[in-house]
Simulated scan of single mutants.
Amino acid sequence: MNSTTISVPSTPLVPTLVHGNSAADISQARQAARVFTDRLTPAPGSDMADTLVLVVSELVTNALRHGGGQYTLQLAAGPGAVTAAVSDPNPEHPRERTPDLGGGSGGFGWHMIRRLTHHLTITPGPGYGKTIHAQLPR
């Protein structure tokens, strides 16, 4: 059962909230990120919007794959930055691993997220889990 919920703000400073628990929900998170950036005033450049969509995709994929099979994504914007915050029920922090160049088992996501974001923090909660806050300059 797909439990995706998307709330797109009528004003850009109101956060967007997305919940997901399946691989099909990754595209919903990407779509929400694209709609969010499209509604910002002033509009960010296409490079920043594309980067946010990529970061969101990697964060929610990692939450599904390594964080307990579900996520909550919150997108917010301020005058100087856009933030994607992804929460999952696993309290363990992401760990870097050597990317698999031949077998297709991944290892690229956390490296990309760290390189593409301006500021990255991990906080405990909600509950037993964690939230990863990825910030990109506007």
Rank of each mutant, 00 (worst) to 15 (best):
P89L: 02
G78E: 14
L75M: 06
T51A: 13
V35S: 04
A81I: 00
S57T: 07
E58Y: 09
H111M: 05
A43Y: 06
P91S: 12
V56E: 07
N21Q: 15
A63W: 00
V60I: 07
L101I: 04
G103W: 08
G20W: 00
Q28D: 14
V86F: 03
G106Q: 05
R95A: 15
T5F: 10
P9L: 04
T5L: 09
A49F: 10
S10G: 11
G67Q: 02
L40H: 13
S105E: 12
P12F: 14
G107F: 09
L73S: 00
R34D: 11
G69A: 01
S3V: 08
A85P: 06
P91Q: 12
W110T: 07
L40F: 14
V53T: 15
G106T: 02
S22D: 14
T4L: 02
A32M: 08
H66K: 03
A85N: 01
T37R: 05
N90M: 05
E92C: 02
V86N: 00
A85D: 12
N62T: 01
G67W: 01
I6P: 07
P94I: 00
P91H: 05
S7L: 09
A63I: 00
R34T: 09
V56R: 15
A29T: 03
A84D: 05
D100F: 05
A84Q: 06
S3T: 07
M112F: 14
T51V: 01
G80W: 09
A24T: 06
N2P: 11
P99N: 12
R97F: 06
I6T: 14
I6A: 14
E96A: 10
G45H: 11
R95T: 13
A32V: 03
F36E: 13
A33M: 14
G20P: 03
D100V: 11
S27N: 10
A43T: 10
V8R: 10
P12L: 05
M112S: 15
T41Q: 05
L64T: 00
S87M: 02
P12D: 06
V8K: 10
P15N: 05
R39P: 03
H111T: 11
P99W: 13
N90H: 04
A63N: 00
D50E: 13
G107S: 08
M112A: 11
W110Y: 14
G104M: 09
A84R: 01
D38M: 13
P12I: 04
A84W: 01
T4V: 09
D38I: 07
S10D: 11
P99C: 13
S87L: 02
H111Q: 07
R39L: 12
A76P: 00
V53C: 12
P12W: 15
L64Y: 01
Q70L: 01
V60P: 04
G106I: 06
L52D: 10
G69Y: 00
M1I: 07
S7Q: 12
L40E: 09
V60G: 01
Q74A: 11
R30E: 15
H93V: 09
V18A: 03
D88K: 04
V60Q: 02
G102F: 14
P79W: 05
G106D: 07
G107E: 12
V14W: 09
